[in-house]
């Protein structure tokens, strides 16, 4: 009985095992392999050591990632709270508003921001009509972070919203009953209980923010190269694939460390697991 079930389970699992072996495990092994070999396939540490040249880029990527994650959290939390406490019909409408930008192609979204932010773009034209002198917005760190926040905000809103809708309203009433005013209810109950959503939102925004490319090229004018851009450039340059692989591996390790810290943090206060 037990054996046949386990055989059945194995059979049912096999497509997924094959899939992940081919398209997840194997590429990872290749990345690691290329990281430690030169162009002729000889073992070397040179690729890894050469990453020191990208220290600025790495720091900038992490910094931009942290800033856009924090901005996303600050914007998303109240939205998620309001959504979760609205009537069912308005919840659906708000959900569509949040999702709508995601239905549009990522590149087009970024291009739209270019059109909006350019020195002669829509916003500055409008300001000019009002008699306000043009504001330089494109090609600034602010523009890059704006692009990231715009692109990744839904990934922060959705997990927080989903945790909040599951909160039993009588928990909030119990807190009020035991002497909490509205602010204390939020601080002592709603926020701690929504932490699992916050943690997974942070992970879902931080990881793509750190590794994003293209946004910085278009909205930063190439002056704020991020890790993702460098990896793209290295892979497009002949003979540089191995350095690109090393940088990819470094980025992966960086993200793993960040996630481990987040999970540790969430475990100490929560029993809800993330990811």
């Amino acid at each position: 009985m037990n054996k046949s079930t386990s055989l059945k389970t194995k059979l049912l699992n096999s497509p997924y095992i094959v899939w992940s072996a081919l398209f997840v495990i194997a590429p990872l092994i290749f990345v690691v392999y290329y990281s430690f070999t030169d162009i002729d396939g000889n073992f070397t540490f040179e690729n890894v050591l050469s990453l020191t040249a990208y220290t600025d880029t790495i720091i900038r990527s992490v910094w931009f990632g942290v800033v856009s994650t924090i901005i996303c959290l600050v914007i998303a939390y109240p939205i998620a709270y309001i959504m979760a406490h609205s009537k069912a019909a308005s919840q659906r409408t708000m959900m569509i508003m949040v999702m709508l930008p995601m239905w549009m192609n990522f590149l087009i979204r970024t291009y739209c921001w270019m059109v909006l932010l350019q020195d002669t773009g829509i916003i500055n034209t409008f300001l000019g009509k009002l008699g306000i002198s043009p504001v330089h917005m494109i090609n600034t760190p602010g523009a890059v972070i704006l692009g990231m926040v715009y692109d990744f905000l839904p990934f922060m809103i959705l997990p927080i919203y989903s945790v909040m809708t599951k909160l039993d309203p009588s928990i909030v009433e119990a807190a009020q009953d035991l002497g909490c005013n509205r602010f204390a209810v939020l601080r002592k109950c709603v926020i701690p209980l929504s932490m699992p959503g916050v943690i997974s939102g942070i992970t879902m925004v931080f990881v793509p923010s750190v590794s994003t490319f293209y946004i910085s090229q278009k909205l930063g004018g190439g002056s704020f190269e991020l890790i993702g851009d460098v990896i793209e450039r290295l892979y497009l340059t002949p003979n540089q694939n191995n350095v690109g692989a090393a940088l990819s591996m470094f980025l992966m390790i960086l993200i793993l460390i960040c996630m481990a810290i987040m999970n540790k943090f969430s475990n100490s206060s929560e029993e809800g697991m993330v990811i």
């Binding site: 039993d168 009588s170 928990i171 209980l193 929560e270």
Partner: peptide, 12 residues
């Protein structure tokens, strides 16, 4: 003070 139907304890 209230004792709620489904307890409403603070699970955190």
């Amino acid at each position: 003070n209230t004792v709620f139907q489904r307890y409403a304890l603070f699970s955190h």
